[in-house]
Amino acid sequence: MSHITNRQAICDTLMEAANHDRSIVVTCSDSRGSASLAPFAQAYPEQFIELGIAEQNLVSVSAGLASCGKKVFAASPASFLSTRSYEQVKVDVAYSGTNVTLIGISGGISYGALGMTHHSLQDIAAMACLPDMRVYLPSDRFQTACLIQELLKDEKPAYVRVSRSVTEDVYGEAMDFTLNRAGVLAEGKDAVIITCGELVPYGVKAQKELKKQGYEVGLLDMYCLKPIDEDAVRQAARQADVVITVEEHSLFGGLGSMVAQIVAADSQTKVINIALPDGHLISGNNHEIFHHYGLDDEGMVAAIKKARSEG
């Protein structure tokens, strides 16, 4: 397993780019340590702005900088960035079309032991419904680096959610990356798993285990939640008997809802959504919570075997 988190991959990528691009600016809300951006702040102090614990100001200042020609990356815990500053994200970034990439760190249940005040289980739905706001959940350090490199090339708003923990490598340095195209990691007729973010490595394990047991299972890394790769979803659903979506998000308005809409308009393939339930969740680390609610590889294997047995 790699010891490089997706957060660190973002910092490394931005530092390399900032070495020759002075228009790159990073802003933080007292989160440079949590975001692994302290090295950037130390190396490029004139391109780093600390706003303190003031997420609304973070977003508005970032939008103002972008309107002056800066390429701004604003980092803050996803649980607060997607709620406390939502009005500013809506008006100053999305409606205004400013060149701000919002980095939601420690997304989902990364702060599991701190309870639901620190969870971000609504952020995909909230951000995706804003006009022209793109939403990304990269799976590993290589995909994260490729994504940031691509976002540095355009001037559109984006929301990138990354986890707090180290994620197992899914890809390699020579990975084939295309912006807004899902990663097709496997194809299969019995079922297809569609997942994103730090759950993708679990999907890889589940697909391999099911293959050992004689199941032909596809796997899509849907890191691009908006715009979602509709062609990849339709093609996978046409090939498979059942679609299983797995997400570190609420049951409502996330990956499962998006996939179900696409599949329902195109085929009769059954869609099963594995997500975090409505209501209070157990406390614990991310692996414990994933296992309890069936979001890990064991849960995916069990869900597919059950769906196949029920026909």
Rank of each mutant, 00 (worst) to 15 (best):
A174Q: 12
A158L: 10
P131T: 10
E150L: 01
E150H: 04
F142S: 04
D154P: 11
A145L: 02
M116S: 12
D140T: 07
S165L: 06
R161P: 03
T117I: 08
M116P: 05
A128H: 04
Q122W: 09
T167W: 03
S120N: 02
S120K: 00
K156N: 15
R161W: 00
C146D: 14
K153S: 11
L152S: 10
M133I: 03
F142D: 04
A174N: 14
Q143G: 15
R164S: 06
V162P: 04
L152G: 12
E173D: 06
A125E: 05
D123G: 01
A145D: 05
Q122N: 15
H119P: 05
A125Y: 04
E155V: 11
L152C: 09
V160G: 02
I148Y: 02
Q143N: 13
D132E: 12
Q143I: 10
E155Q: 14
D132K: 15
C146N: 13
F177G: 07
V135M: 08
K156Q: 15
Q122D: 13
D176F: 06
M175W: 06
C146A: 15
L114I: 09
H118A: 07
P131Q: 03
R134C: 14
K156G: 09
Y159Q: 01
C146E: 11
V166G: 09
S165D: 14
L137N: 07
R141L: 08
F177Q: 04
S120D: 05
R141M: 10
A126Q: 03
Q149P: 08
Y159H: 00
S139M: 05
I148A: 01
S163D: 03
L147I: 07
C129Y: 10
L137R: 11
C146I: 08
Y159V: 03
L130H: 07
D169M: 06
